[in-house]
Design a protein around this nucleic acid. Structure first.
Lengths: 336, 336
DNA sequence: TTATCTTACTAAAACGTTTGACTAAGATAT
DNA sequence: ATATCTTAGTCAAACGTTTTAGTAAGATAA
C-alpha cells in the first residue's frame, strides 16, 4: 500500500508537508498542495483510517447495536428499514457503520468495551433489551448514544410516535362507529406501555368503554400468539367489533383464526394492524394499519448522533418523535 | 482510556511483558501472566483494535457490500436474512462487520479504496450490480472476497441453487398435471439467467412444450410489474394453467390482478412464488413457493471468507451452492 | 571452573498518521 | 544596515500496539 512517506519521497517533500497538503489546510503554497494531491492520486494513495484515528481520536465510524431477543432484529422490516436509513444518512456525512455486539469468541467484551475496542465515535441502539445492565452501562458511558424507541434520562432518543399512533387508530375507529374495541398488546416493553396508556386515554376521551376482557397480552411478530388471542376474543359472549393487533405480521395469525371461525373481514369483524409493512398494501383486503415512518426514524437517529459527536459542547440531549399516518385500508367496516 | 503502558507501570513491568502476558503466549512465567491479566481486568483495560491493526495488519473486521440499485437491498427479507446470518457467523469467529459503500461526502472512495481505508480483512459482496467496474476491481484485488449469487472466475461465491429450485418447481407442477406453464422472469441478472436456462431444460426433460408467449420479462420485488405480466397472461386466448413468479412479494401483484379478473386461486389458475418469505406461510391460501435457505447462504459466505482470510495459502476458490426446498402450499391445483 | 542453556524478562523499532514547535530564506519596514 | 514579519516548509514526538533481538541471572553440563 502506498503511504504518505512514498508520496513524500516521490515529491521531494517531507512527510509533514504531504500530510498537510492532503488535508488541504495549513500554510503550504497552493502549487505544492495541488502537486501533492496530483501525485497522491496517481500513486493510488488511500489514507489509513486506523493510523489517522490513533492520532486524532476520531474514527468516523458509528456503532450500531441491534440485538433482538429472537436474534433476528434485522429480519423485521421495521428494523431493517431503520438500519438501511441509518446507513444511508451516515454515509452521506462521511461515517461508516460497524455492528456492535457480544463477541462469542476468545475475548468476551461487553457492548461498551466492544465500542471502545473499535473506537466508534458513537452508538445507535435499537431493538435490544433496554433493561440489560450492559446496555445501561453503554448509554451511561461517555460515548455519545442515541436510542431508538426507548428513552433514558438525559440521553437522546428517537421514537416512533406510538401515543399518536394509537390515538389516531382509536379516532378512526370511533369515526366508523366502533365502540367495542379489542386490543392485543405486544410484549412488555416501553413501546407497549406507551401504546396501552394511549389506548386507555383515547378511549376515555371518546367515551368508549374499555372492557378488560377486550385487552389481551400478546407478543410482537408471533402470529400464533395473535391467533390465540383472537380466538379468545371471538369466543367471548359479547364479541368486539374490531381487533387491534400489535403489528401487521402477527395480525396474519389473527386472520387465519377469524377465517377458521367462518367470519369475514370486515363484514363480520374489523381488524387493524400496526407498522405499515410494505405487504400491508398488497394484501386483499388492504390492511388498515398505522404506518410507522421507519426510514425517517433512522435518518433522525443518525443525524442526532452525528450532531452529538461533532458538537459535544452544544448538542443537547433530545427526544425526537417521528409521526406516522393512518393507512385507511379495507379491514375496518363502518357500522351504523 | 487505560492502555498497556498504564498496566505496565502498575505492575512494575515493561510494556513488552504486559503485551505478551495479555496475549497469553510467549515466555513469561505463569505467575506473571495471571497477575497481569488480573490487573488489566481490574483497571478495565480494553485493547485498541486500530493500534493493534497497525502492527499486525489484521483488523478482524469484514466488509459487507450491499448496494441495491433501489438502494434498499437490506429491506428485502432475502438479503436482510443473509446479512443477519453473516453477522452472527462472523461474530462467532471474532470478526466484526463494517459496511462498505461509496462515500458521498468529502472524499470519494471507490469500493476497493473504502475497503482499504477501513482495513477490512475481506469483503462479502451481495445485491450489487456485478458488472460495475468498481465491483470488478474490488473482486480482482488482493483482498479476499466472497460474492453471493454471482460467480467470478477463480473467486469464491455462494449461490442459492436456482437451477435446482426451478427444476423442483417444474417437477412439482408436472406431477400435478400442469403442462401450460407461464414464467415471469426477474430482471436480467445472472440469477435470472440460471433460472431461465433451468426452466427450459426442465421443461424439455418433462416434455412440457414451452410457449414463447408464456415467458414474460418481469422484475424482482415490483408487484406492479408482475401484475401487468399476469394481466397479459390472463388475456391470452390459450391461458396458462399456472404462473411462476420471480419472487413471493411481487407475486402479490399477480394475485390482485387475478382477482380483478374474477378468477380464484387455485381453482381457476395456479400460482407459484420464489423465496419462501416468512409471510408466505401465513397467507391464505398458503403460497406454493421455493424456499431459499438464506441464512445458510450467509453462514457459508462468512465461513468461506474467514477461511480465505486465515488460510491464504491453502484455501482455494470455491463455489458453494445452497439448496432450498419446495413449500407445497395451497396455490397449485392438481389437474386431471 | 568455565561454558552453555534456560528462564524471564526488557529495549527499541515499527506500523501510518497528525500536529505543534521550529527554521531558513526572502520581503518589508525603519 | 538591522530588525521584524511572512512564507513555505521541516522536525520530531506522539497515538497504542506488537515483535525481534537482546540480556542478566541462575541452572546445568563437561
Amino acid at each position: 500500500m502506498v503511504k504518505i512517506k512514498d508520496i513524500a519521497e516521490s515529491c521531494g517533500l517531507s512527510i509533514a508537508s504531504v500530510s498537510k497538503a492532503l488535508s488541504g489546510k495549513s500554510d503550504l503554497s497552493q502549487k505544492t498542495i495541488e502537486y501533492v494531491q496530483q501525485v497522491a492520486k496517481e500513486m493510488g494513495y488511500v489514507p489509513n483510517a486506523s493510523a489517522r484515528l490513533l492520532k486524532t481520536n476520531r474514527s468516523y465510524n458509528i456503532g450500531v447495536l441491534f440485538v433482538d431477543k429472537t436474534s433476528s432484529g434485522l429480519e423485521h422490516e421495521y428494523f431493517s428499514t431503520i438500519l438501511n436509513s441509518i446507513k444511508d444518512e451516515a454515509e452521506k456525512n462521511g461515517y461508516d457503520i460497524t455492528f456492535i455486539s457480544h463477541h462469542f469468541s476468545n475475548n468476551n467484551l461487553t457492548f461498551y468495551e466492544h465500542a471502545k475496542y473499535r473506537n466508534v465515535d458513537g452508538v445507535i441502539i435499537a431493538s435490544v433489551d433496554f433493561k440489560d445492565p450492559e446496555v445501561i452501562k453503554l448509554v451511561d458511558s461517555s460515548l455519545p448514544t442515541v436510542t431508538i424507541d426507548y428513552d433514558f434520562n438525559d440521553k437522546s432518543s428517537v421514537d416512533s410516535d406510538n401515543v399518536q399512533g394509537i390515538q389516531d387508530i382509536i379516532s378512526y375507529l370511533v369515526e366508523n362507529g366502533h365502540k367495542k374495541i379489542a386490543f392485543i398488546q405486544g410484549d412488555d416493553t416501553s413501546v407497549t406501555q406507551k401504546r396501552v396508556t394511549s389506548f386507555y386515554r383515547a378511549c376515555a376521551i371518546h367515551n368508549v368503554p374499555v372492557k378488560e376482557e377486550y385487552i389481551k397480552q400478546g407478543a410482537y411478530h408471533i402470529p400464533q400468539v395473535s391467533g390465540k388471542a383472537t380466538r379468545e376474543l371471538l369466543e367471548l359472549p359479547d364479541r368486539p367489533t374490531v381487533i387491534m393487533y400489535p403489528d401487521d405480521y402477527s395480525l396474519l395469525g389473527g386472520i387465519t383464526e377469524i377465517e377458521k371461525h367462518g367470519l369475514r373481514i370486515p363484514e363480520d369483524i374489523s381488524i387493524v394492524g400496526y407498522d405499515g409493512i410494505k405487504l400491508s398494501r398488497l394484501l386483499r383486503p388492504v390492511l388498515t394499519t398505522y404506518v410507522q415512518n421507519s426510514s425517517e426514524i433512522g435518518i433522525q437517529a443518525a443525524r442526532k448522533l452525528i450532531d452529538l459527536i461533532e458538537n459535544p459542547k452544544t448538542s443537547l440531549p433530545e427526544r425526537i418523535s417521528v409521526k406516522g399516518y393512518m393507512q385507511k385500508g379495507e379491514t375496518v367496516k363502518k357500522i351504523n
